[in-house]
């Protein structure tokens, strides 16, 4: 998608990982490494984005993602404004573009956007003035690129490289923007085998065309994996006749210590959060030695700092 790259190949917006060159993904991960120690300093700040205004535009509620974006922006010394539009002007019927225009008139430099509709970040990016960058913080089922990047960062930290890995993504791929971003990142970074595991009702049509192998059984799908990524299962899936019950789901697709034992002994377990313990993941696994779920959150800040710094024209710390 050329929308997110400038004519000279620099990152203008971060909307999706689909189609981003490997060099850019690697550069973001490398830059994120350089931001890792900022959080450990006594003064947890670098002045890269001093004087820049970043608006967190959340058309859909989120605590975790919004908070990590906010922390990342503040550590870069930017001014941050949080707008939970789900509960403000949108309910008064204001069109998205009017909201965006109004904030642009307040001299915004960057919008971090979350919206329930796939393509919403593209839509805003196409509309804004050239000096404004858009970061997609999750649009519908489509993409959550910073989550995908922080997952890659986590994998690289624990596994060192991508070229020799087998990675399984388990659960509700159909509704997951996280899974889509992970799949694009993993295939771009050269992971030779990316698997998706789930019942047929939760896997999108033609998902193989994204470069993954499809499994419907945990026993087969987890065998020999280096990385196991669990996806969140929302309760409303039971209402749409996609699943009979969360108990049955857990029995067949929940990650228990027994099932994890089928993966490689040094396999890591990831989850984008928030977790449903006892639905997609057993607490023993979530809190166990192979879980890297909390480090993922920590890395999320460094990765988001790297993305925002690159978009604002800066580089590393």
């Amino acid at each position: 998608m050329n929308l997110q790259l400038s004519a000279d190949g620099r990152l203008r917006h971060l909307l999706t990982l689909d189609g981003l060159p490997r060099a850019i993904l690697t550069q973001i991960l490398d830059n994120a490494e350089s931001f890792m120690d900022v959080g450990e300093r006594e003064v947890k700040k670098v002045p890269l984005l001093r004087g820049k205004s970043i608006f967190n535009l959340f058309f859909e509620p989120s605590t975790r993602t919004r908070t990590t974006f906010e922390i990342a922006a503040k550590r870069l010394s930017a001014d941050v404004v949080n707008l939970n539009i789900a509960t403000s002007s949108q309910t008064k019927g204001e069109a998205i573009l009017d909201t965006v225009d109004n904030l642009a008139a307040m001299n915004a430099d960057m919008f971090v956007v979350r919206h329930s509709q796939s393509g919403a970040a593209h839509f805003i990016a196409r509309h804004v003035a050239p000096h404004i960058s858009v970061v997609n913080a999750g649009d519908g089922r489509h993409a959550h690129p910073t989550q995908g990047l922080l997952d890659m960062f986590t994998i690289r930290r624990y596994k060192g490289a991508f070229h020799n890995l087998t990675v399984a993504i388990v659960g509700d791929v159909l509704h997951s923007r996280v899974a889509r971003s992970q799949i694009h990142a993993l295939t771009t970074l050269g992971v030779p085998e990316v698997r998706v595991i789930g019942p047929k009702t939760l896997l999108p049509v033609g998902v193989e065309q994204m470069g993954v192998k499809v499994f419907h059984s945990m026993e087969q799908g987890l065998a020999g994996c280096d990385v196991v990524i669990m996806l969140r299962l929302q309760n409303e899936r039971m209402k749409g006749a996609l699943l009979p019950s969360s108990q049955e789901y857990f029995k067949f697709f929940g990650l228990t210590p027994e099932k994890l034992a089928l993966a490689k002994p040094d396999a890591i377990v990831m989850h984008p959060g928030p977790m449903n313990r006892g639905v997609e993941i057993d607490s023993e696994v979530a809190d166990g030695p192979q879980s890297v779920i909390l480090p993922q959150v920590t890395y999320g800040i460094a990765v988001r700092m790297a993305v925002m710094a690159m978009l604002a024209g800066g580089a590393a710390a």
């Binding site: 689909d18 796939s118 393509g119 649009d139 519908g140 089922r141 489509h142 993409a143 923007r177 889509r180 999108p204 049509v205 033609g206 998902v207 065309q209 994204m210």
Partner: peptide, 13 residues
Amino acid sequence: HDGAVASRLGLPG
């Protein structure tokens, strides 16, 4: 259309 493109874009098919 419920196919590869909608799956990629995350659009309900």
